[in-house]
Amino acid sequence: MNKVLNINLGGYPFTIDLDAYAMLEDYLQTIEHHFHNSEGCDEIIADIENRMAELFNEELGKRGIVGEKDVERAIAIMGTPEDFGAEPMEAGPKKSKKRKKKSSDFDGFKFGKRLFRDPEDTQVAGVCSGLAAYFGIEDPLWVRLGFVGFTLSGGVGIPLYIILWAITKEANSPSDRLSMKGEPINVSNIGKKVEEEMERFSEKVNEWGESEKWEEWKDKKKWKSSKEKIKKKFKKKMNQGFRAGEV
């Protein structure tokens, strides 16, 4: 016994075994991945899907359900992904070079980026590190040097820095940090960022706890006084709340 799925392949409905479906999906995805840089990718995939649908129709005859063997046979006729890879798909070396260049240009400037200030890597306010993240420069030092250069040569550097400071906001939330670096905002990426931030937070707490600041603070008894202040405020709020409740 096996569960079946209903799918639409090349505009035709098929009932297909779960195993066979997984196999087919895997196959089509591999091919799509292989062709995603070639021009007319959608068309190629559509042609292949149409042809697979036709092959299934021929094979099935009066049977109702596409099984693993049918998929295997169709793949054998169409060719495995290795067959596709073995055949160079580009018209000539010129074209492929052009295309490769294009795609590498695009990598450095990912879609959906926004300019933020990076509060984790700052010298003044994080403008430079935010710019570095935006343009995909590994080390913000170069941006900083650029600003220093600007300032020394003409004096535009400082006003420019202040303007950028004013118009950008700090990347505080995990999703801000992702769009600062142009990484896609999805659940797993955000999860990753949150984990990183938790780690950083606990590191900071530890550092602070060990540092002398903490000792100084304790000595000055600021701790005590601020604690009392909070208590007082809390009492006040509670009282207010009760009164409001009575009325």
Binding site: E39, E43, I77, G79, E87, M89
Partner: peptide
Amino acid sequence: VEGTLYPLLT
């Protein structure tokens, strides 16, 4: 295999 033909035709 047929698969190699489609990219070419396209």
